[in-house]
Design a protein around this nucleic acid. Structure first.
Lengths: 333, 333
DNA sequence: TTGTACGCGTTATCAT
DNA sequence: ATGATAACGCGTACAA
């Protein structure tokens, strides 16, 4: 492997000079600069990453913490992040976290040993001690799709409750009264979306029927399918379903068809997220859109800003959501 | 940041001893060992990654090269890889490649500066010079979902042609004669799957109608939808479609419904890959299954084996594929 | 404008 | 069984 010393020797200068050239500092005669550059190119020299991070005490790496079984929504999110992080000059290191304490502990160890320059959380942690640790060492961080105001971290998110309310009210406005909910028991957003559903009901004088709520252990299609099947078994009057995520909705639609119920003829379904695949389901899924790409960009910007300009408090950005009308909701009016 | 020297000082020993304890080498009195371990734990010391890689000349990192817009099949694949790579003690560094030469050049630069211990390609490269470079520096590598026998790299893949033939013959066995193909113009596997389709036709005395073939610019649902729409416009007799990937199939089904055609009543559809979502489409997608998880594991094993035991030639593993019967194909018999 | 010397945190080698 | 020292490749303060 060719090192800075090799280049220096070849160019007849010292390593410091090569370093100066490479880092575009002043005080280098332009003819020397050119000679060095030529040799660098000729030999295909590239600075060693480990050595740089050691002396600079920086890793040029930003960690992105995501669930091990990331869903399609998160997939779109972190593809966007990686893209913008690279534009900012950072490598992206993904941390796939399982929903367990030991997994979080392992993450903490890796965190310490890798000297990350910053972190983006796309995954809400169970254990607040990790947030606490990050705050203590003052590590630049941004939260994406949730927030924790008690730590004062920059965050980008949507108003979960209002978005869920938007979805539920769409159903109500289309004449639905017996509206079921499929959400998940984990994560704050699942509870917030449930809350939005209840508020929509209350605001329109509809009573909340606990028999119509399913709290799944996960947010994927399989959980949606199982949840819907369980809901059907309860034999409550039901004309529409609000699924807290699009993946849940996709599973619910599947279960409905398996049970001989057509969507939206017999039961209407609305989701929340607007993942890629939602426009390709049959029927197309009516849902509430989160601006995924923009949120990914913004969270990348937030960490990078913190790294270069220091932490400016009060930068929690709330993105707005909109209804995307497709074909999974029938109007009863 | 607490370093090995701090621990040494605190324990009243030298840094070498701490290092020996941490790396579980012999020649350390057990009482000293215990004292060091206690302090390490108390201070939460974790070895610095950059320093280790510098002295060991290893990064403990394996690069995984995937398309920037990875599909759901690849997503499942590299989640599996990350899992097994971590078990082998390696970090995973993802390289999202765009389909362009400049993107490949940028990859080459990163490759040099990061001193990877190995690479897994889940993405076939356009430019053979990169494979050439890797071969020259003898960097451990494994190919996943394709192979390049001219370089003698270990690889795991399926028999693309036979798998496509399997899918097409399934259609033929169910009485279909007018069978369309939607594949992609990029990547070897797209052409191989086309070849399998043609061979199946020929083997059963069916003539190949070029009007029934669509070569999309991509392999995602949107491309499948556009391809199917174009195919319908040609107004050829058509009772079934072989889509070269499940994502293509999902888009094709969508287009069919949009055009007032029902699946499988009017047109049957079969895919290839068996991605997660395929069991949740309506109707459930009949397809050919690639053993995704096993392939991810095997390719991780292959690089790790090369790293630890050197390159054993002739380790190209071909996984077999099987038909997964769901509801998107109608029997005409 | 350029070179020398040192240090970043760790491990391996050699001496004790 | 343990410690001192050199080395990995780079950036920077300081000397020249």
């Amino acid at each position: 492997m060719v090192s800075i010393k090799d280049i220096a020797r070849l160019a007849g200068v010292s390593a410091s000079t090569v370093s100066r050239v490479l880092n575009e500092r002043e005080y280098v005669r332009s003819e020397v600069r050119q000679r060095v550059l030529d040799i660098v190119k000729e030999r295909g020299y590239v600075p060693n990453h480990a050595a740089r991070s050691m002396v600079l005490q920086r890793s040029f790496t930003i960690g992105v913490v995501i669930p091990y079984l990331f869903n399609m929504f998160q997939r779109q999110l972190f593809a966007a992040m990686e893209f913008f992080l690279e534009q900012h000059g950072y490598k992206t290191q993904f941390f796939f976290l399982r929903w367990s304490d030991s997994s979080e502990q392992a993450f903490l160890r890796r965190l310490k040993s890798e000297a990350l320059d910053g972190i983006i959380f796309v995954h809400e942690l169970d254990n607040p001690s990790i947030y606490q640790y990050i705050k203590e060492i003052n590590l630049p961080v941004a939260l994406c799709t949730f927030e924790r105001s008690e730590f004062g971290f920059p965050a980008v998110h949507i108003d979960e409750e209002s978005s869920a309310r938007l979805a539920t009210e769409y159903l109500i406005q289309h004449g639905h009264r017996d509206i079921g909910l499929i959400t998940g028991e984990h994560f704050t957003f699942g509870r917030q979306r449930e809350e939005g559903y209840k508020k929509a009901l209350a605001a329109h004088g509809l009573s909340y029927n606990p028999e119509l709520t399913i709290r799944a252990t996960s947010y994927n299609p399989e959980a949606g399918r199982a949840g819907m099947l369980a809901l059907i078994k309860r034999k409550q009057p039901l004309s529409a379903i609000f699924a807290a995520t699009d993946e849940l909705a996709i599973g619910a639609i599947k279960a409905l068809y398996e049970s001989g119920l057509r969507v939206p003829t017999d039961v209407s379904v609305i989701g929340l997220d607007d993942i890629d695949i939602s426009s390709f389901t049959t029927p197309g899924l009516t849902t509430v859109r989160q601006p995924i790409f923009e949120m990914g960009k913004k969270s990348a910007d937030l960490v990078c800003d913190w790294i270069s300009h220091g932490h400016t408090t009060e930068n929690v950005e709330q993105f707005s959501t909109t209804i995307v009308e497709r074909d999974s909701v029938r109007s009863l009016n």
